[in-house]
Simulated assay, not measured.
Amino acid sequence: MATSGTQRPGGRTERTRQSVLHATLDLLAERGFSELTVDAVAERSGVHKTTVYRRWSSPDGLVAAALQMGAEDDWKAPDTGSLEDDLYEVAAEVVRYFTEPALKELPTASVLAAFQSPPAAEALHDFYQDRHERMAPIVERAIARGEVPLGTDGDDVIRAVCGPMFYRLFISREGATLADARISARAVAVAAREGAFLPRI
Rank of each mutant, 00 (worst) to 15 (best):
E84P: 05
P118I: 15
H125D: 07
F115T: 15
G70Q: 11
D126F: 07
A121C: 11
V94E: 08
S58A: 12
A65T: 02
D126T: 12
V95P: 07
R141C: 03
T80N: 12
I138M: 00
T80C: 14
G61T: 00
Y88G: 12
E147W: 00
P118W: 15
P59Q: 05
L112Y: 03
D126Y: 10
R54L: 12
S58Q: 09
E140P: 04
W75S: 15
L124P: 02
G61H: 01
G81P: 01
E140W: 06
R141E: 04
Q129A: 15
K76A: 14
E105M: 09
A136T: 13
T108V: 15
H132N: 09
Q68I: 06
T108I: 06
G146M: 02
A66R: 01
A66D: 04
A109R: 00
H132D: 09
A92W: 02
L87Q: 07
S82P: 03
V95M: 10
V63N: 03
A109Q: 03
A91S: 15
S58V: 11
A121I: 10
P101C: 08
V111G: 11
Y128L: 13
E122H: 12
E140N: 14
Y53E: 06
P101Q: 15
E89V: 09
Y128I: 09
G146V: 00
A120D: 04
E140T: 06
L150N: 08
M69T: 09
A120G: 01
S117A: 02
H125Q: 13
L112W: 04
F127K: 15
K76S: 13
E133C: 10
L124H: 10
W56A: 01
D130F: 06
G61A: 06
A65Y: 01
V95H: 02
S58Y: 07
H125C: 09
A123T: 03
Q129R: 14
R134S: 11
A65W: 01
E105T: 09
Q116L: 11
L83A: 02
V148P: 01
A120W: 00
P119Q: 07
G146Y: 02
E84S: 14
A113Y: 05
R131N: 10
E122T: 13
M69E: 11
V63C: 05
G146K: 04
R141M: 05
S117K: 03
E84K: 12
D73S: 14
Y128N: 07
V111K: 07
F127S: 04
L103Y: 10
V63I: 14
H125R: 15
K76I: 12
S117V: 08
S82Q: 06
R54P: 06
R134Q: 14
D126V: 08
A102N: 10
L87I: 05
P118T: 15
A92R: 04
P78F: 01
A144I: 02
V148N: 00
A102I: 08
A71W: 08
L62D: 01
A123G: 04
D60W: 07
R134Y: 05
L83S: 01
I143S: 02
F115P: 13
P119Y: 08
Q129T: 13
A77G: 13
A102K: 06
A71L: 15
M135T: 05
